Amino acid sequence: MRMYLLLMGLTFATSYLLTPLMRRIGLKVLVEAPLRDRDVHERPIPKLGGVAMVAAILLGLGAATQIDFLSGSFRDPGPALGVATAAVLVLVLGVADDVWDLRWYYKLAGQTAIGLVVAGSGIRLEAMPVGWIRLPDGPMQTALTVLLVVLTMNAINFVDGLDGLAAGMAGIGAAAFFVYCYTLSRTINQFDHSNFSAMLMALLLGACLGFLPHNFHPAKIFMGESGALIIGLLMSVAAIAVTADVGAQEGYRFRNVPAYMPILLPVAVIMLPLLDLALAVIRRTARGRSPFSADRGHLHHKLVDGGYTQRQAVCLLYLWSALIAFGSVSFIFKQLHTGILLTVWGLLLLGAAYLTLHPWIRRTRSR
């Protein structure tokens, strides 16, 4: 655990210290987010914060290769090299989009190339976690891997609409995912607690927490495209890698770790971004518009329009993220009584639902 905390601290410090530098560079070269009808900020803000996050993650990944405790994660150097290469492509694509505002099909092509790099490095979805249905080797595994990477990237991108929202939600999700992956590593191997997915989540958590103080309302800088893409990349890679970890441990899969967790937890971690993505695609398609066109119909926009301040809306979405992600993780601990856990979780979800709908309930009562 101490080595993972060390990596978190390294990426936190790097991200925290580099972000002001990227802000100054962003102001100097005018890489900033202009005001649009759907925006909630009141002045143009630089959007190169994701560069600091990517740099912190690459530095942390390099440092991890020198830590003996994590040597088990690098026996096959392919996945780590693939993640590093994909992160560099994220940096190039993200900065290009922030500077030139690329058209959606160029961004989709770039995201697909990133997914292909991931699949080519050996990180592929080899089995469906529910029922453990083995996928045939070759094009199907590659296609599903690319689809998962691209889908997760766009889900994170869609939710990046309020100060601190994407970084905070990603940090919460990374923390929950880290707990799961670390617990899994201790369960399946009592001698080697290194885990590739746990390491990636430690890096992501540190980078998000280091960036968040500069991005929380009122934001001094935005993460931009590179920040959203690196979050989506690490989340999807960790989900695929941990699925392979669990699938390889037949003797432990049902006895110690719920078989549904490898697919439930990654979905739970990005549940709100995925829901927002699905609703946006339905909404825009129904209006005859491209699913990639921008509008002001996202969940966070609805909360602000309903009467919440930016900070209140962000904290409310943090609450939902924490309840869904950590609520899902809690089921892996055998010592917790399932009935009591479900009751407490259900009550907390009802409380969060009431807080979410409170402005509309109050308006209805006042009529």
Rank of each mutant, 00 (worst) to 15 (best):
T309C: 02
F74C: 02
L102V: 10
P20A: 00
K47S: 13
L30V: 09
V146K: 04
A109L: 14
P262W: 03
L355E: 04
T152L: 13
Y308K: 04
K220Y: 07
Q312M: 08
L317W: 12
L265G: 12
P129D: 04
M128I: 08
L274N: 08
L233Q: 07
C315L: 15
L59C: 04
L279F: 14
R253C: 00
M223T: 00
K220S: 13
V146Y: 08
A239Y: 15
M3H: 12
I172W: 13
L6P: 06
W360N: 10
L147T: 13
A353M: 10
R287P: 12
D192Q: 00
L234G: 15
N157Y: 06
L93Q: 03
R24V: 04
I231Q: 15
V242Q: 14
R186P: 05
Y354Q: 04
R367P: 14
R134C: 03
R253L: 09
G173M: 09
S121D: 04
V40T: 07
G327H: 05
F254C: 04
R124Y: 12
Q66F: 07
T65P: 10
Q66T: 00
N256P: 14
I270C: 10
I156W: 15
N154L: 07
I231Y: 15
E126M: 06
L299P: 05
L91D: 01
A175P: 12
G94F: 11
L59R: 03
G171E: 10
S197Y: 07
F331W: 13
A198W: 05
T65S: 10
Y308F: 09
L275P: 12
H298C: 00
A241H: 07
L212E: 09
A33K: 09
P273S: 00
A219P: 12
G161T: 01
V51H: 10
S293Q: 05
L348F: 14
Y106F: 15
T285R: 13
V90I: 01
L61C: 09
S290F: 11
V118T: 03
V146T: 06
I156L: 15
S121P: 11
W360P: 14
T65E: 10
L342W: 12
V304Q: 11
G346D: 05
G307V: 00
S290C: 07
A86S: 02
R36E: 11
V90F: 12
V304I: 08
D37L: 03
L10P: 08
A207C: 07
L116S: 09
D98E: 06
G227E: 05
I324S: 11
A87Y: 14
A244I: 05
F222I: 06
G161Q: 04
Y182W: 04
H217V: 02
I114A: 06
M53T: 07
S185T: 08
T243L: 05
A167R: 08
I133D: 14
S330L: 06
Y308I: 00
P79W: 03
G72Y: 02
A241Q: 06
T285M: 13
A353S: 14
D276H: 01
L116Q: 11
S290L: 04
M8V: 03
P273M: 00
L18W: 07
V267Y: 13
D245Y: 03
G224M: 13
S293R: 08
G110Y: 06
V90M: 01
G49F: 10
G131P: 15
R367V: 09
W360L: 14
G72E: 08
H301R: 02
R367E: 11
F333S: 02
G206S: 03
